[in-house]
Amino acid sequence: MRQTKRYRVNKDNSLWHIYQTVSFWKVVKNVCIIQLGRYMPLLSVKNWLYRTFLRMKVGKTTAFALMVMPDTMFPEQIKVGSNCVIGYNTTILAHEYLIKEYRIGPVVIGDEVMVGANTTVLPGVTIGNGAIISAATLVNKDVPPGVFAGGNPMQIIYTKEELTERQEDDE
């Protein structure tokens, strides 16, 4: 179950009232930093930008590939552990605006997690240490540590034990 906080709205859809939710200038700053980061070839500089200006928690030697899109409204809700790879064109959302409500929830990605290209991580999700997420996955629920998961909707493809056994067979 995703851990999001729900905020009901009256009348117009929730996105119509976006700047009552988050400051316009915060969004402008975040969009500029994120666009710079999306194309930044130096991983250490990209991580510094995200930590310093977006207040994201990013572990050591974590690599955000080209075109990764962190949340523009609430990037401070994103925590990525150490030694992770976040694949090309992945989107990490900490908010979602719906018709009658909006939701905000932290995204926690553990240590040594690999997220494949073109994946979308929804708000309120935790991905456990050592998990592997295949490309083009919609991460719509928590992922246990050490598993291999993928698809839309996301499913566990290999448990931690099955994945360990496969890796031992490869050696």
Rank of each mutant, 00 (worst) to 15 (best):
T62R: 05
S134Y: 07
V139N: 07
P123F: 07
M67E: 09
D111V: 03
G130I: 04
I92T: 06
L122G: 00
V139D: 11
V85Y: 14
T120V: 15
I92L: 13
K141N: 02
I127W: 04
F64G: 08
V107N: 10
A94Y: 07
G110R: 09
I132G: 00
N140E: 06
Y102F: 14
H95Q: 12
I127Q: 02
T119E: 07
Y88V: 03
V121A: 01
G87S: 05
N118F: 12
T61S: 14
G128V: 02
K79E: 14
K60H: 06
F74H: 13
T126E: 14
T91H: 07
T72M: 12
S134G: 13
E101Y: 15
T91E: 13
G130M: 03
E101C: 12
G110T: 06
Y102L: 11
N89G: 00
G59N: 05
F74E: 12
V115D: 01
V125P: 02
I99D: 13
G130A: 04
V113W: 00
K60T: 02
N118G: 10
V108R: 15
I133K: 08
L93R: 15
Y88D: 01
M69K: 10
T72N: 08
V125C: 06
I86Y: 05
G105D: 07
V125E: 02
E112Q: 12
G110L: 11
Y97R: 03
V125F: 09
I86V: 13
V139A: 12
G128Y: 01
H95F: 10
G105C: 03
P75K: 12
V80C: 02
A136T: 08
N89E: 13
A94M: 03
F64W: 12
K141A: 07
R103S: 01
T137F: 10
G59A: 09
N118E: 10
I78V: 13
V68D: 08
I109W: 08
T137V: 10
I109L: 07
T90M: 06
I109C: 08
H95I: 05
G59E: 05
K60C: 00
A65P: 00
Y88K: 02
T72C: 11
V113F: 06
T90V: 12
I92A: 11
T120H: 05
L122H: 13
K141F: 02
E112V: 00
Q77I: 00
Y88L: 15
A135Y: 06
V115G: 12
G59T: 04
Q77L: 13
G110S: 10
E101N: 06
V113P: 07
E76T: 02
A135N: 05
M69A: 08
Y97N: 09
A136I: 00
E96M: 12
V139W: 10
L98A: 10
I99A: 08
V125K: 09
E101T: 01
F64C: 04
A136P: 01
E101Q: 11
N83R: 14
A63M: 03
Q77Y: 14
T126D: 02
G124P: 02
E96W: 02
M114W: 14
I99C: 04
I109V: 12
G87P: 04
G116F: 08
I104K: 15
N89L: 01
V113T: 10
G87W: 06
K141R: 12
T120E: 11
I104H: 10
